[in-house]
């Protein structure tokens, strides 16, 4: 078997085991706060003046299986998940899959775009900085980078929204124009999405771009001193070609292994920005589900996070092995 195939297979075998561990952990966390959804529900009703009888509460408790031991609840949840049933949201009284579905797609679109923005800007900027260290442009990039890292992204969002509104007379909240918020998917809705999505994508990507530029610059500066660069230069390659072909390629390797963390970091990191910019992505939904102890909704979202994290890590592992033969051979031999 080729080393690469073995390398990928080994990781695929681990996938179900990891998912099982995560599901147990997720369930434990969602169950951890005292009380359950019904206690919160009764309290909410009471505070709004209406009430519910003890029999009704008991009936609901039985219906959702809240009277059974925890491990039975877990097994029931797993059984439903295996059938592709994410359960019902206790709060919204709608299937969780429906609630999560569109928000998940929008979250992924946003994540992908801000990822592309980050890499397309940061890698060339880092390469330029490293090739012209201590030049005026390098200093300027460094300044921009520090400001980028230091600015909280929700603040950047507020400033940009205000700027767009005050000077361009544009409303840039949300991901859709009012006409398209509830509309079914169509070409026009996708176009509308693209018109709105770039600003949040940039806002979410700025800090990451700044960090990535710094890391790329530092990695490449290290690589540029290696003897293989002298060899390539002595061979007669042009400076750009040799930098892109040799040291930049090696400087990228450590960065590729962080791709897997990008999606979950953006999931949890975008909460404040999503609230400020009124983005219909998954962060606010998870927050609400957790506050209301809507456990199957929260559990489903968390489990999807975990799944995406594992898949992301798998993708970066594969990319890394594909880029770096040393990893491919070392791991494949074992």
């Amino acid at each position: 078997m080729a080393p690469m195939t073995r390398y990928v297979l080994k990781r695929l075998v681990l996938l179900p085991a990891l998912l099982f561990l995560f599901s147990v952990a997720v369930f434990a966390i969602v169950q951890a706060p005292p009380g359950d959804f019904l206690t919160t529900y009764v309290a909410t009703l009471a505070s709004s003046g209406s009430s519910i009888s003890a029999e009704q509460v008991e009936a609901l408790r039985r219906e959702y299986g809240l009277d059974r031991p925890i491990w039975v609840q877990y097994l029931k949840w797993m059984e439903n998940l295996a059938k592709g049933n994410l359960g019902l949201s206790l709060e919204y009284q709608r299937p969780n899959a429906e609630l999560i579905g569109e928000r998940l797609v929008l979250t992924m679109v946003l994540a992908l775009l801000s990822f592309v923005f980050t890499w397309v800007v940061a890698i060339p900027a880092g390469i330029y900085s490293a090739m012209h260290p201590r030049s005026a442009i390098d200093y300027a990039l460094t300044l921009v980078n520090y400001v980028g890292v230091a600015t909280p992204n929700f603040m950047l969002a507020l400033v940009l929204m205000w700027g767009a509104f005050a000077y361009l007379d544009m409303s840039v909240t949300g991901l859709f124009s009012p006409d398209f918020v509830e509309a079914p998917w169509s070409v026009a809705r996708v176009v509308d999405l693209l018109k709105h999505v770039w600003l949040p994508a940039v806002v979410l990507g700025v800090a990451g771009t700044a960090r990535l530029t710094r890391v790329m610059r530092a990695n490449l500066l290290d690589e540029l001193n290696k003897p293989y660069v002298t060899t390539a230069r002595a061979k007669g390659l042009s400076e750009w070609r040799l930098v892109v072909r040799y040291p930049a390629r090696l400087a990228l390797n450590p960065l590729v292994s962080t791709i897997g963390w990008y999606l979950p970091a953006l999931f949890s990191g975008s909460l404040i920005v999503a609230t400020v910019m009124n983005l219909p992505n998954i962060g606010p939904l998870l927050l609400r589900a957790l506050i209301n102890q809507d456990m199957y909704l929260a559990g489903s979202i968390l489990l999807i996070y975990c799944f995406l994290t594992i898949v992301g890590t798998l993708i970066s592992d594969i990319l890394l092995a594909w880029l770096d033969p040393r990893i491919r051979f070392e791991e494949g031999m074992r």
């Binding site: 290696k226 003897p227 293989y228 002298t230 060899t231 390539a232 040799y246 390629r249 090696l250 390797n253 880029l323 770096d324 033969p325 040393r326």
Partner: peptide
């Protein structure tokens, strides 16, 4: 040792 690129 170091004069060849390790990934090519």
């Amino acid at each position: 040792m170091a004069a060849f690129s390790p990934v090519h």
